[in-house]
């Protein structure tokens, strides 16, 4: 069974053994507004925990996407590029962005579980 973790920069990772699917949280999509553009790396590119892996643009602004974990990209959500509104409609399912092979499992400990992330968001939005 996969576990769901969040970063303080509002990305999520669904971790299943040594792979992780990555996207942005419902809170993030809501504060960004209508998503109209997504740029993600190519398969085989490396991403690093806490570093930028892509760009997301809403009608309001362009924002950087930070990877919650380090690893190699093994799949990207190609259909999302032409349907960026899926990030708004379904941030944790159809709005997934990349799937990586996790390089260092201990990095998972730096992420927040769902309850801790909810607390973090509640504090941040006040």
């Amino acid at each position: 069974m996969s576990i769901l973790k969040f970063s303080k920069t509002h990305e999520w990772a669904k971790i299943d053994n040594n792979t992780a699917v990555i996207g942005i949280s419902d809170y993030a999509q809501h504060s960004l507004g209508d998503i109209v553009f997504i740029e993600v790396p190519k398969v085989k590119d490396k991403v690093k925990a806490g570093s930028q892996f892509g760009t997301i643009e809403s009608t309001k602004a362009a924002s950087e996407l930070y990877s919650p974990l380090s690893g190699e990209v093994i799949e990207i959500n190609k259909d999302l590029i032409n349907n960026p509104q899926w990030v708004n409609e379904s941030p944790l399912e159809r709005g997934w962005m990349i799937k990586i092979k996790i390089e260092n499992n201990s990095e998972v400990n730096n992420l927040l579980d769902e309850a801790a992330y909810k607390d973090f968001v509640a504090k941040e939005s006040h």
């Binding site: 507004g33 209508d34 809403s58 009608t59 309001k60």
Partner: peptide, 9 residues
């Protein structure tokens, strides 16, 4: 307000 629900809508 920058938007109420959605700029596109």
């Amino acid at each position: 307000p920058i938007e109420y629900t959605s700029i596109l809508k």
